[in-house]
């Protein structure tokens, strides 16, 4: 039951995009078309779940025993970057269809704050391996939900009568602010 609460809390109540501002850059850049947003979200789920597992294992089975905890940042960022390269290579060689759909977003995920943020948060919060996997999946699922809804909203904003000064990034940010207000309403859920 505790895992379910963790999932709901990280995916919806404390959504990382709208309350901790983790993955803002892709939110602004990629979310013009809903289909692209969906593909980006699926790629992010893939990377974050695997990255959570690998970084957790490396932290507790390599860095802590060898007493080199100060290497955590360098280890995490290089592991995440190598993971992204490896996954892209794997997709290129094994399934071109999946690569065409979501492989193009993989290099963008290296500098996504969410992946490194989730890896560091898992360590700070002291989760065990199962909780770290659930946290990774919850965060990326929350990201997918937000980016998809945001893409749908932005598509409709293109046809609305927005004042000239607000067209483009400003109205997108204000819509994100209203979405963040809405998420605040879930605060008492867990």
């Amino acid at each position: 039951m505790k895992l379910f609460e963790l999932f709901i809390s990280l995916a919806f109540v404390n959504n990382v995009v709208l309350s901790k501002f983790y993955a803002i850059c892709p939110l602004m850049g990629v979310s013009k078309k809903p289909k692209n947003a969906l593909n980006m979200g699926l790629a992010v789920i893939f990377v974050i779940v695997i990255a959570s597992i690998v970084t957790w294992l490396l932290y507790y089975y390599v860095l802590v025993p060898l007493d080199i905890i100060y290497m955590d940042l360098i280890t995490f960022i290089l592991v995440i970057a190598s993971l992204v390269q490896f996954l892209e290579m794997l997709l290129k060689k094994t399934s071109p269809e999946v690569y065409k759909a979501m492989g193009v977003y993989l290099p963008l995920i290296t500098t996504n704050c969410a992946v490194l943020g989730v890896a560091l948060d898992n360590i700070t919060a002291g989760y065990n391996l199962i909780e770290a996997i659930v946290a990774g999946f919850a965060v990326s699922f929350g990201f997918l939900a937000v980016i998809y809804i945001f893409a749908l909203i932005r598509e409709r904003l293109d046809y609305s009568d927005v004042p000239e000064a607000f067209r483009g990034a400003p109205i997108a940010l204000i819509s994100a602010g209203i979405m963040a207000c809405a998420i605040c309403g879930l605060a008492g859920l867990i």
Partner: peptide
Amino acid sequence: IYFTLYILN
């Protein structure tokens, strides 16, 4: 490891 995977990719 990272440089090898990057160059291979």
